[in-house]
């Protein structure tokens, strides 16, 4: 069974982005970049499926500039067998990404497509569902556990009231939540070996698909700051202050 995992190259999760002086966009130049943490969980899950003998081949796909190869190498080091970069310099939005991924899915015919539930830069959380709809497959979003047998995948989903289990016929699209697994620590030999694994480059504009951005970003700003608070010295003082604020009985 072939598994395709989509990975996004994003600003490192420890870095708070700066805003450009003209307020037109965030400025991520010169910052550490890496694999979107939710996508790393998706890759880890694919690797575990291969280790259990369920998956036979793992293909990692990323869309973006040449720099996205770093994130593909991360996926290869985790255990993906080969990688595809759909190369473009234009601003990507979920609909365009889903359309581009669809072309690769149609070419590779994986039984399972894994993605992170959202990317930590745009926080959209749309690509997996859009891809599933465009492909006409079932979807399992916010997965915290999965199990595959007899052409069907059972997914435990994290929903607002607890957990829900759904059964989806393969091929299916599944998006990973935080608690699906804890990705393994990358060891240096794996990183070295990953350099020998192939990365195929496809030029996005040659695929004949309209993936141009639909949303125009007018400006970005820092969120409003809260007024400074005060420190209290005891529980009694805290309770007194909150009663004055009329938020405690």
């Amino acid at each position: 069974m072939k598994v395709l995992v989509a990975v996004k190259h994003v600003l490192d999760y420890n870095i708070v982005p700066r805003i450009k002086q003209d307020g037109s966009d965030v400025d991520i130049s010169g910052n550490k970049m890496g694999i979107n943490p939710f996508d790393e969980i998706a890759v880890e899950e694919a690797v575990r499926l291969k280790e259990r003998g369920v998956a036979t081949e793992i293909i990692a796909v990323s869309i973006g500039t040449e720099n996205s190869k770093d994130t593909l190498r991360h996926a290869l080091a985790l255990g993906a067998d080969r990688a595809v970069l759909i190369q473009t310099d234009i601003v990507l939005q979920p609909l365009g990404v889903a359309k581009l991924l669809k072309t690769i899915v149609e070419k590779e015919q994986p039984a399972l497509i894994l993605l992170g539930k959202q990317a930590i830069d745009d926080d959209a959380g749309q690509t997996g569902q859009m891809l599933s709809a465009l492909l006409g497959t079932g979807q399992g979003t916010f997965a915290s556990a999965l199990n595959i047998k007899d052409g069907v995948i059972e997914v435990i989903r994290e929903v607002d009231t607890g957990n829900e289990t759904v059964s989806i016929k393969l091929p299916a699209v599944v998006t990973s939540d935080l608690r699906l697994n804890e990705p393994r620590f990358l060891k240096l030999p794996n990183l070295m070996m990953a350099k020998k694994k192939p990365i195929e480059t496809i030029i996005a504009s040659e695929l004949g698909i309209d993936f141009s951005p639909r949303l125009k970003q007018l400006k970005v700003a820092e969120p409003p700051v809260r007024k400074p608070g005060v420190m209290v010295n005891s529980v009694a003082e805290l309770v007194e202050k909150l009663r004055i604020e009329k938020v405690l009985p």
């Binding site: 939005q93 979920p94 609909l95 889903a98 926080d123 959209a124 959380g125 749309q126 690509t127 997996g128 569902q129 859009m130 891809l131 599933s132 709809a133 465009l134 979807q139 979003t141 916010f142 989903r157 994290e158 929903v159 607002d160 639909r214 949303l215």
Partner: peptide, 23 residues
């Protein structure tokens, strides 16, 4: 912006061929 809508509306947007705005 609930678990159900987050799962449903991107599918709707994709099949209408329009962008979606989350949250």
């Amino acid at each position: 912006h609930t678990a159900l809508s987050k799962s449903v509306l991107p599918r709707v947007a994709a099949l209408l061929d329009v962008a979606m705005l989350s949250d």
